[in-house]
Design a protein around this nucleic acid. Structure first.
Lengths: 221, 221
DNA sequence: CTTTTCTTTACGGGAAACCGTAAGACGAAT
DNA sequence: ATTCGTCTTACGGTTTCCCGTAAAGAAAAG
């Protein structure tokens, strides 16, 4: 069982519930912060004590408020934590359900469990906790769902760059200049047009507007 | 104090916390459902018993799953509830922070309290509860924040219609036909262009793409 | 019934986007 | 070095969009 657990969650209502669940599981006094920066500093402090944290439960998205933060989301927090305490077990508890977001966390940052905020999340939370305590990881098959919802198409960073420029109001004919300024190739108007057409073909989109709408809906940009 | 409270919330972690908060406040056994349809039917049933509900705490957004529902969001639920039990006290507990969404609930549907899911939400929840119990309403000034974030511009239903058509991939030149088919005026291409230009001017947008991105970001469409 | 004013529509020139084709650049393999 | 294939760029014709102006229509005022 775990001795020292840190919960990083900005909704008090959720963190309360997580604390309660941990209590039910025999964790005495889970600690809680609602800002990523504090979480990292607490972890750093604890690591040089006889009792560092052995489990981190964190959300991914945090709302900005007047308290300015260096680290503004859970992904950055996890990345930073992995630098200072690579063996810390990490459970991600978030409403985020997109495979494209979660998969890198599993593969690149080696998180140990993922629980989606949903109708039975507390039960899942407990199951994930048990799994980690027994040296296993916990990645529910529910994620398959996201997979079929998901798009087979993979947007490259190049694609995202040009789509983002469009969404910012750049005219198509002005984008080549932007690309050159940022040393991005291909930069010609022709290549741009061709690539945009490929993407739109892929989805049977007729206009750029439709593409932008899609990308916003699925948080591609 | 309230005798019978119904919590409508699809995240178990949140509903647990709300239950706990109600317990702290002396409400014995708050009831809980995670689907809007069930909520309405429970309320309908209770209203013909000696002990109908006297407080409803509901979220606004609910995730769809395999359980198909007639009522898919909290706004529709509240509207339906107001039909069958107009005097029921309603507390909206949601992550939704846009004034354009909340204000109609207050003005048109007469909800009694609004608490935003955030860093101190449980405390706010209790404050809201106390307020309603004492015959007052609870609408925190925090909403002012949303106001200054907010945009003075009001999109008409006409605006939204044409923007939506664009986002669906309709070409500008084909939209007049759509408008005529749906008996929407003005329908001419000129009027369409003029209106789009007005909107874009208002925001200093340069392209339709940028307008679509904006509307998606702020859930106008 | 006029006049005024506002809204909607029609039109036309210029800019941008769309789309196919062809030429050029580059790397890999022979 | 040559060939081949791929990726990038250049160019031109067509369509669509953009934008200003003017005419037509409708509603309110005189």
């Amino acid at each position: 069982m775990f001795e020292r657990v840190l919960i990083v969650e900005d909704h008090e209502s959720v963190s309360n519930s997580v604390k309660q669940a941990l209590n039910d599981l025999g964790v005495d006094n889970p600690e809680h912060v609602s800002y990523c920066d504090y979480a990292l500093s607490w972890i750093k402090k604890a690591i040089v004590t006889p009792q560092p944290y052995d489990l981190l439960i964190t959300d991914l998205s945090f709302e900005e408020d007047q308290t300015v933060q260096q680290i503004t989301d859970g992904v950055a927090l996890i990345r930073a934590v992995r630098e200072v305490q690579p063996d810390l077990k990490i459970l991600v508890f978030t409403a985020e359900g997109r495979l494209e977001v979660i998969r890198p966390l599993i593969e690149k940052l080696g998180i140990n469990a993922y629980v989606r905020k949903a109708r039975r999340d507390t039960q899942e939370l407990k199951a994930a906790f048990e799994a980690i305590a027994n040296g296993r990881n916990y990645f529910p098959l529910q994620m398959k769902r996201s997979e079929r919802n998901g798009h087979s198409f993979n947007f490259s960073t190049y694609d995202i760059t040009i789509i983002r420029l469009l969404a910012e109001g750049k005219k198509q004919k002005d984008i080549p200049q932007c690309l050159q300024d940022n040393k991005i190739t291909p930069s010609s108007l022709s290549s741009l047009e061709k690539r945009l057409n490929q993407i739109k073909d892929e989805f049977s989109f007729t206009t750029n507007e439709q593409l932008i709408a899609y990308c916003k809906d699925f948080k591609i940009i």
